[in-house]
């Protein structure tokens, strides 16, 4: 008996020594997930596991982001996870985030989980002031965020003070006015009461629609220099590339829509945007950081691919997935009406 036990123990420690796994933590917008990955896994294996765990099928919007030095990078699907240049202390931390954004949020997002993750990500970016949000829009959006959290407005339940623990507005907005917390709550509650009759899901979608209408998400900004050495901002989004003055992130000086670009090349650490119109100037730029240049290139390719894909018929698999999700949504709505 003892020898059997000893041999079993020996076997277990041997197994441990030969462990072919490493641990990762995947932080989503509403949960932290722990996974044990095989050493040979590629980015795709981990990404697919996360999507399966979340029940998320609209995978094309998302990516796994990690911090590297003073910037961020996205896990490559066809490269081994451990071959990426990142700190290897376990658990390795990744953030599961929207990498690409829809052109039209209402038409394109199908699953509730996709919508929820987008909602949480955009809301966080607005509250943390990564995105500029005018004061009046902050109040309107806060009323929909509250609606998404608390359900439909009910004056018997939602009494003064019910928002006292909530983070409602960007600090910058609060500092612009001489208003107490109670006054802000009252403003937001007035709006909340005005859009009664919606479900939480509908409130989330309304939030995203308003934010999209006001162009408050979807652009990835990068500090760049043009060939004359002028500091500029580059914005990459679902519709194309935009060049901004660093002091005005909202109105581009020049835009290059994807369908008007003949080609974007990257060589000798320099980008060149060649417009379709051969008479138009080629726009050359770069970022001083190699990692940022790589990130720009990845986002250009990914956004352009999605732009082209939106203009083609969905694959059978995607058609089926969208149909299932729509049926599920319709079934839920029917159930709600019946109740």
């Amino acid at each position: 008996m003892a020898s059997v036990l000893a041999s079993k123990m020996g076997l277990n420690s041997l197994r441990r020594k030969q462990a072919k796994t490493f641990s990762v933590t995947v932080v989503t917008m509403d949960a932290d997930l722990e996974f044990s990955c095989e050493l040979k896994w590629k980015g795709k294996d981990l990404f697919e596991l996360v999507c399966r765990t979340l029940g998320l099928r609209e995978t094309w919007f998302f990516g796994l982001r990690y911090d590297v030095k003073d910037t961020v990078a996205w896990l490559k699907m066809d490269k081994k996870v451990l071959d990426h240049d990142m700190p290897k202390e376990e658990p390795i931390v990744f953030h599961f985030l929207a990498k690409f954004y829809p052109e039209n949020v209402e038409d394109e997002l199908v699953q509730d989980i996709t919508q929820h993750l987008f909602f949480l990500q955009v809301k966080t970016s607005i509250l943390e002031e990564e995105i500029y949000c005018p004061p009046e829009a902050s109040v309107l959006l806060a009323s929909y965020a509250i609606h998404a959290k608390y359900g439909d407005y009910d004056p018997n339940v939602h009494k003064p003070g019910f928002l006292s623990q909530e983070e409602l507005l960007p600090k910058r907005v609060i500092n612009l006015y001489q208003m107490t917390a109670e006054m802000w709550e009252e403003r937001i509650t007035v709006c909340y009461a005005e859009h009664r009759g919606r479900t939480r899901d509908e409130a989330e979608m309304e939030y995203l629609k308003i934010a999209q209408d006001l162009e408050m998400y979807g652009v990835n900004y990068f500090s760049i220099r043009n060939k004359k050495g002028t500091s500029l901002l580059l914005g990459v989004d679902a519709l194309g590339l935009h060049i901004y003055d660093p002091s005005n992130k909202l109105t581009p000086k020049i835009s290059f829509p994807w369908n008007e670009i003949r080609n974007i090349s990257y060589s000798d650490k320099e980008f060149a945007i060649k417009p379709l119109d051969k008479r138009a100037d080629v726009f050359k730029f770069n970022s001083s950081k190699l990692r940022v240049n790589k990130l720009i290139l990845q986002l250009c390719i990914g956004n352009h691919d999605l732009f082209m894909r939106r203009r083609r018929v969905d694959s059978l698999e995607v058609q089926q997935m969208k149909m299932q999700a729509r049926e599920e949504k319709a079934r839920k709505q029917m159930e709600r009406r019946r109740l």
């Binding site: 006015y177 629609k209 308003i210």
Partner: peptide
């Protein structure tokens, strides 16, 4: 930038008006 939905547009204008009297002098 105005939202496509006129209802939102009106709501934003109303909120802007209601905030105005409380704006800090510097704004």
């Amino acid at each position: 930038n105005n939202p496509r939905n006129p209802h939102h547009h009106r709501a934003l204008q109303e909120i802007r008006r209601s905030l105005m009297p409380f704006a800090n002098e510097t704004t």
